[in-house]
């Protein structure tokens, strides 16, 4: 298939070359340069950012990475660590994976495969798209009103609802529209011939979805959902509204389930607060925390890519 597509794309080039003769295509060349420049500017900015962060945090990473990863929040930069931020971010990730993914993918499957193509579904579709564009602070307010205030008896009555459950649920809701849209997009890319073939041999709708549509759309769905996970892990604004702790936090219950109802903090919150701390050493610690968050997000992405490759091979 690869070889076939290559000959397909190269043959028009040969035709174009013959038609144009040996004339130099100035406009085309200029456009190509422009695109190349766009790519280099983007990559350059990214490289600059990475270099800046890594070099800024190198003092911490090279000398006390272990302490830094296992230490607690605090007022002395030399002793401060991010273990609690990592824990909060981990739990938030779990909530997003466990709540937003099944709900979002489920809604997308219903909308694409089951719902009749009526005005109502189009209306719903448009609204979901709008929801995906709502600023994250607004979701923070929503989370504050619903999870922190109204559902306090579930999310953590003894911590005023400012817990990792509230945070996880808020961010799950935040990425839900994105999960639905990307999944729906992936489902829409499945050729209808595949479905028709399934129906043609007498499969039910459920059988067609399960054994034809989903496997085909799987990698696309996975890519979209993991991007939304990365988005959730990087959000700070909604967490501030939900009541993430910024100053100090005791070790508490560690990774046990009891800690879900405790006050929490998360990596983006730590980065945000430390960046504003005047005490010496916190600028370095901030850079190091950014590097750690980047690594965490990259790890999540890597897992997704590996999973996607596995599914693609199976297909």
């Amino acid at each position: 298939m690869n070889a076939a597509s290559r000959t397909l794309t190269s043959s028009p080039e040969i035709v174009r070359a013959r038609l144009q003769g040996r004339r130099f295509d100035a406009a085309g060349f200029f456009f190509r340069l422009l695109l190349l420049a766009a790519m280099f500017v983007t990559l350059g900015l990214l490289a600059l950012l990475l270099f800046d962060v890594v070099s800024g945090g190198w003092g911490v990473i090279s000398t006390r990475l272990g302490d830094f990863l296992t230490g607690k929040l605090g007022i002395t930069a030399a002793r401060a660590g991010i273990s609690q931020g990592l824990r909060g971010t981990f739990f938030i990730g779990v909530f997003v994976v466990a709540i937003a993914f099944p709900l979002g993918v489920g809604a997308a499957i219903y909308l694409e495969e089951y719902a009749p193509h009526s005005r109502l579904t189009r209306f719903i579709d448009v609204n979901i798209r709008n929801l995906a564009g709502v600023p994250s602070v607004v979701y923070g307010l929503l989370g504050f009103a619903i999870f922190v205030k109204a559902l306090r008896f579930v999310t953590g009555p003894e911590s005023n609802g400012a817990t990792v459950i509230s945070a996880g649920l808020t961010l799950a809701v935040l990425v839900l529209p994105i999960v639905i849209i990307t999944s729906a997009e992936a489902l829409r890319a499945v050729p209808d011939s595949l479905r028709e073939a399934g129906f043609g041999v007498g499969a039910t709708r459920w059988e067609v979805v399960r054994s034809h549509v989903l496997p085909y759309a799987g990698p696309g769905i996975l890519t979209g959902t993991v991007l939304s996970l990365a988005r959730a892990l990087g959000e700070a604004a909604p967490l501030i509204l939900v009541g993430a702790t910024t100053g100090y936090l005791s070790e508490g219950a560690g990774y046990s389930l009891a800690s879900l109802q405790e006050r929490f903090t998360a990596m983006p919150i730590i980065i945000y607060t430390w960046a504003g701390r005047p005490q010496p050493g916190f600028q370095e610690a901030t850079a190091a925390a950014i590097v750690v968050l980047l690594v965490v997000v990259l790890l999540a992405n890597t897992v997704a890519i590996l999973l996607r490759n596995r599914y693609e091979k199976r297909r």
Binding site: T245, Y248, L249, S250
Partner: peptide, 20 residues
């Protein structure tokens, strides 16, 4: 309050203190 909490935490690791 953070400085005091850090010292107090060393004495009583089971308390859950949060400071903002």
């Amino acid at each position: 309050s953070i400085g005091v909490a850090e010292q107090f935490d060393d004495l009583h690791p089971d308390t859950r203190i949060s400071v903002d």
